[in-house]
Design a protein around this nucleic acid. Structure first.
Length: 335
DNA sequence: GAGCCTTTGAAGAAT
DNA sequence: ATTCTTCAAAGGCTC
């Protein structure tokens, strides 16, 4: 369900959907009324601002007020990260997958969407990249002082207790057992990391006269964090079949690949290891394996996407990303 | 009820 | 400069 969004139809995503649509609901799927009374939101759905109940949770020692007074961050609303291209895509496509595949589990849906994402044409992906870029731009205008770091540690992670069988599976896999490395040390590590944390007191102060309304992001691409090149995808540069894919996705240094070669992100090796624990790594002939070998047992629904994969809209005939790149291939990094 | 799962991408932290 | 980690969404499931 898309609370406020008003729904982005893929079509609506089109560039022409300039600010208005963007503003209308982009990054605040389920937002909570902005707490800033003083801030007059210019007919703009405020970005995800949310007051989290257990927010304080003891992190962020850095901004603790000596006295008993409520810490600043406690009163500050939780400003969510702007959605990236894929997230925007998911938001649009999720309902379709749900209805088509009759699945409800987000994990499964996301797997399907992940595959579909790869099968998208560059143009289609570019649409979302562009949209995401606008989102970031808008977000940075709304919250100039916001930093992704602010949200670090907001999600408390629980240590997953692996079953023996799972551990075995991991072990037998032989490599990178963990998809998400269970942190040995508490996540908010950096928070305790004495760093000059910018005083975010007035996160929204700038909003008072937000240029937002006037902002035509597309034109003001000179935003700091955003790659000027529209499609600047964090992903690999050119080389349709970039195997070596930009060893790092340090997107910021974003390649200046123009629209010609928008993004070959399709081949991007994933940082987080795929569900290896469930996907038997077959040392044998890779070709023998179907594109998506053995998906999670109970996740048969993956077929939903996998079945019709043959010829995605993406012209990339040969270099075909997803199909030719079985999940097992994307094991790469993260040692 | 909090957190996990699962995906990709962005950004910050760490090396 | 490169690598690693966290968080965005989301809903069923697990603890």
């Amino acid at each position: 369900m898309y609370p406020l969004t008003g729904g982005f139809s893929p079509a609506a995503l089109a560039m022409n959907a300039s600010m208005s649509s963007l503003v209308s609901g982009s990054f605040s799927p389920r937002l909570v009324p902005t707490p800033q009374p003083s801030v007059s939101q210019p007919s703009v759905a405020p970005p995800a601002v949310k007051q989290e109940p257990g927010e304080h949770s003891g992190h962020e020692p850095s901004r603790k007020s000596a006295s008993g007074a409520p810490r600043e961050d406690e009163r500050r609303p939780h400003i969510k990260k702007p959605l990236n291209a894929f997230m925007l895509y998911m938001r649009d496509e999720r309902p379709k997958v749900v209805s088509q595949c009759k699945v409800k589990e987000s994990a499964t849906i996301n797997q399907i969407l992940g595959q579909r994402w790869h099968s998208l044409s560059k143009d289609q992906q570019a649409k979302y990249y562009e949209l995401a870029r606008k989102e970031r731009l808008l977000h940075s205008k709304l919250y100039p002082n916001w930093s992704a770091r602010d949200n670090y540690g907001k999600k408390k992670k629980r240590k997953r207790i692996k079953s023996e069988s799972q551990l075995e599976a991991d072990a037998s896999d032989g490599f990178l057992p963990q998809t998400k490395k269970p942190r040995q040390d508490p996540p908010p590590a950096h928070t305790s990391h004495a760093r000059p944390h910018l005083p975010q007191t007035n996160t929204m102060s700038h909003l008072t006269h937000t240029h937002l309304s006037q902002a035509s992001p597309a034109s003001s691409l000179d935003s700091p964090a955003t790659p000027t090149t529209a499609l600047a995808s964090p992903a690999a540069p050119a080389a349709t079949h970039t195997e070596h894919t930009h060893s790092s996705h340090s997107g910021r240094s974003s390649p200046s690949s123009e629209q010609l070669q928008p993004l070959s992100l399709t081949t991007k090796p994933h940082r987080t290891a795929p569900p290896l624990s469930r996907i038997p790594v077959t040392p044998g002939p890779p070709t023998a394996e179907p594109p998506f070998p053995h998906t999670p047992t109970s996740r048969s629904s993956l077929h939903c996407f996998i079945s019709p994969p043959p010829t995605g809209p993406h012209t990339s005939s040969a270099s075909s990303p997803p199909q030719s790149q079985p999940l097992s291939l994307r094991t790469t990094n993260r040692l």
